[in-house]
Every structure is written in structure tokens, then in C-alpha cells.
């Protein structure tokens, strides 16, 4: 069972939750950038939420299925099955020979294709995530190219019609609820090097707009706006970097660390974006203007756990519980 890549799209990689727990060896975590759509695609397809999917960037791929499968696309992209429009956020039954194409994203930057049963690839340290910089994981450690044959597990689950009905119902309830959680400003927990920045610098960060630069990639969202003032520059002795860490470079401009970030860095970090706001950053495109706001730890934790409950709800509903 496999998928043949007819057109690769702009940047299509195999990603799961990431290579978690190996940062002390210097392994970047990688993994899907937009956890919200990544989890959703998997759960609607009947997979565990952290199963490997295809992350499509800007322009999705065109694939020919060499066997029968159930697939789900999550994201704002036009999808065609054998040339006819097909819905996102809905399980699609595809047969051997069918051609699925994911077009240019209408909104946002990334869409996810989940295949029921996921892909038959060899994990590296327990993960199928592609590490583009270190050339490991995923499909031969690289993005998919035309004529690749991507081995998949799966086939069609036992009761696809029920799965489709449940997904359609979810689309207008749970998924709608998730959309409502979109922030007007990105929530940031301050630190751990906030003492590097002047009071004015801390204020600049949350009162100015920052424009997403086209040099952004899966490692970092690079931003341009009012320079953030420091006392004595932003160099520190390198320490660990977390997903969502906001490093401020020597020129005073912030960079938010995304999934492929290095494990350590030598710029002071003004704060860390909370996990539930990361999907919003993963979908921002060059030219978007971002605003940041502080959130305290307790409030952020409460909101995080509520956000994660949405996925528990989707999971139990899809399972018929």
C-alpha cells in the first residue's frame, strides 16, 4: 500500500508530534507546526492524534493512491479528488488509481493530510518527523519529490460511513469551538531572560506590531518591527530553547522558535508563546502583522488544559463514546 507523488507541492514533509526527549543530544524536535490541524486531521481519520501525517506548505501535493485508503485534509486548501472538489475536515474514501490534489492554500500557510493507519516508514528515536536540516527521519530525511513512492499502512476502516457522519457533525460543533479560541494577540509568558531588557523594551514588545518576514521557515518565525531595547545587548551564554521561545537578536528584532528550532541558542529570550497560540503562528504568512500580549502562568495553564480537552472531545466523539 502506498502513495505515488505526482507533484510535490512547495514543501511537503512527513511529520508527527516530533522527536521528543533528545534535546540533550542536540536533536531538534521537529514535528507538525500547527498542532491543532495536525491533531484534528488524525482524529477525523481515526488515527491516534500524534500519528505521522503529511505537512503541506503554501501549495499542496498531488498524489495517486496505489491502494484503497481513508484520508482527511485539515487546512484552508482547495482539495480535488479525481478532478472534482472534495471537502476538508471530512474523511474521504479513495481507491487505487484515484488522484488527490491539494491546491494553493487560500488562508494560512500549512495544511495536513492524514491517512488512516499512517505511513510505513522507519522511526528515528521513536519519531517519523522529517528533520530537514539534519537529513533524518520522515521519507529519506527530506521533503517529498515528484515520483516518490510513500509506503502507507491502513486501507479503509471497518465503518467508514459512521466515521464520515461523525466528522461532518463535529465540523459544525467542536471545530467551530476551536476557531473561537483564536487570539487577537499572541499570548506570551515572560522570561526567562526578561532582566536583559529595559522596561521600555518590554513595553515595546507588547505595544508594537511585528511583521512576519519571508525569511521565516520551520525553524523560526522572523519578525520585523520596533527594536526591543536591552541594557547591554542580547548575547547570553547559550542555553536550552523551547518551542515558542522568543529570542531577541542583536538588532532588537524578535524571532519565535518553531518546530525545527535548534536545541540551544545564545540570544536572550524575552518570553515564550503558549502552546495553544502556536498554531496561529504556524499559519501566519509573510506580511502578516502580529501583536503580543503577556499572560500569567496560572491563566495560561488553565486555558491550555481547556484547549487540550477539545481534542479529547473530538477523539471520544469519533470513537462513539
Amino acid at each position: 500500500m502506498s502513495l505515488q507523488i505526482l507533484e510535490s507541492g512547495f514543501l511537503t514533509t512527513v511529520q508527527d508530534e516530533g522527536r521528543i526527549g533528545f534535546a540533550s543530544l542536540g536533536y531538534p524536535e521537529c514535528g507538525a507546526c500547527d498542532t491543532e490541524r495536525f491533531y484534528t486531521a488524525n482524529l477525523l481519520a481515526g488515527n491516534p492524534r500524534n500519528a505521522a501525517v503529511l505537512e503541506c506548505t503554501l501549495l499542496g501535493p498531488t498524489l495517486r493512491f496505489q491502494s484503497d485508503h481513508l484520508v482527511v485534509v485539515a487546512g484552508s486548501a482547495p482539495v480535488c479528488l479525481n478532478g472534482k472538489p472534495a471537502p476538508c475536515y471530512a474523511p474521504l474514501i479513495v481507491h487505487a488509481g484515484d488522484i488527490l490534489s491539494i491546491g494553493a492554500l487560500v488562508k494560512g500557510l500549512r495544511a495536513y493530510l492524514a491517512v488512516y493507519g499512517s505511513f510505513a516508514l522507519s522511526p528515528v528515536f521513536g519519531s517519523l518527523s522529517t528533520d530537514l536540516r539534519c537529513h533524518l527521519g520522515g521519507f529519506h530525511g527530506r521533503s517529498l519529490q515528484k515520483d516518490d513512492i510513500l509506503p502507507a499502512e491502513g486501507g479503509i476502516p471497518p465503518f467508514p460511513d459512521i466515521q464520515i457522519q461523525r466528522a461532518m457533525h463535529l465540523k459544525i460543533t467542536q471545530l467551530h469551538a476551536l476557531q473561537q479560541t483564536r487570539p487577537h494577540a499572541i499570548h506570551v509568558i515572560s522570561g526567562p531572560q526578561e532582566q536583559t531588557f529595559t522596561e521600555k523594551g518590554m513595553h515595546t514588545f507588547v505595544s508594537s506590531g511585528y511583521t512576519v518576514l519571508s525569511s521565516s521557515n520551520r525553524m523560526a518565525l522572523r519578525l520585523d518591527g520596533d527594536a526591543i531595547e536591552t541594557f547591554h545587548g542580547s548575547d547570553i551564554l547559550s542555553d536550552a530553547i523551547a518551542l515558542g521561545s522568543i529570542q531577541v537578536a542583536s538588532d532588537g528584532q524578535p524571532m519565535v522558535m518553531l518546530s525545527d528550532h535548534q536545541t540551544t541558542g545564545g540570544y536572550a529570550k524575552i518570553g515564550t508563546v503558549i502552546p495553544q497560540d502556536m498554531p496561529y503562528l504556524a499559519q501566519s504568512v509573510p506580511g502578516d502583522v502580529l501583536h503580543f500580549t503577556w499572560i500569567d502562568y496560572a491563566d495560561a495553564l488553565l486555558r491550555y488544559r481547556t484547549w487540550m480537552q477539545h481534542f479529547d472531545c473530538i477523539e471520544s466523539y469519533m470513537k462513539g463514546n
Binding site: I20, G21, F22, A23, S24, L237, S238, D239, A240, A242, T263, T264, P275, Y297, L301, Y304, R305, M308
Partner: peptide, 22 residues
Amino acid sequence: MIELVPAFASLYVRYTPMETDF
């Protein structure tokens, strides 16, 4: 706790906020 990341002058402790807190 998920992992530890030592550096020159720090030790980073990563945890899952679904199971514990700071």
C-alpha cells in the same frame, strides 16, 4: 518530567503541563 537539557550555566527541565506544573 520529559527531559533535561544541560548548558554552560543552566539546566533546563522539560515537563508536560497536562500532568504537572511549574
